Simulated assay, not measured.
Amino acid sequence: MNVSLSVEILPESTLRDVVDLLVRLVEAAGALIIFVGAAWAFGHFLRAGIRGGGVGRQFNQIRLSLGRFLALGLEFQLAGDVLRTAIAPSFTEIGQLAAIAAIRTALNYFLSREIANERAEIERERRKEEDGSRAQVGPT
Rank of each mutant, 00 (worst) to 15 (best):
F69V: 00
T105Y: 15
L10C: 06
L70G: 00
S13G: 01
R124L: 14
T140D: 12
A106G: 14
I50R: 13
I34W: 04
A120V: 02
V23S: 07
P89W: 08
S6Y: 08
S13C: 03
V18Y: 13
G54W: 00
I87P: 01
D81V: 05
S13K: 05
V26F: 04
L83K: 13
S65L: 10
E75W: 13
I94L: 15
G54A: 10
L22E: 11
V26L: 08
I115Q: 11
R119M: 08
A120M: 05
K128H: 13
S133M: 12
A48Q: 06
R16I: 07
R127T: 11
T14V: 07
P11D: 14
A99Y: 03
D20K: 08
L72M: 15
F42T: 10
V3N: 11
H44T: 01
P89F: 09
V82Y: 12
V19N: 08
T85W: 02
S112D: 09
E12Y: 02
A86T: 05
V36G: 04
L111A: 12
S65F: 05
E75T: 14
V26Q: 12
F91M: 04
E121H: 10
G52H: 15
I94R: 01
I94K: 00
V82Q: 09
D17I: 03
A101F: 09
E12Q: 04
L97Q: 04
V7T: 10
G54F: 12
S65N: 13
G43K: 05
H44E: 07
A102E: 01
I50V: 12
I33F: 06
R126I: 00
A120Q: 07
I122R: 00
F59W: 05
L107Y: 15
G95Y: 04
A101T: 11
I34A: 09
V18I: 11
L22C: 10
G95S: 11
I87A: 06
A31Y: 07
R68Q: 10
E75V: 10
A106S: 15
Q58M: 07
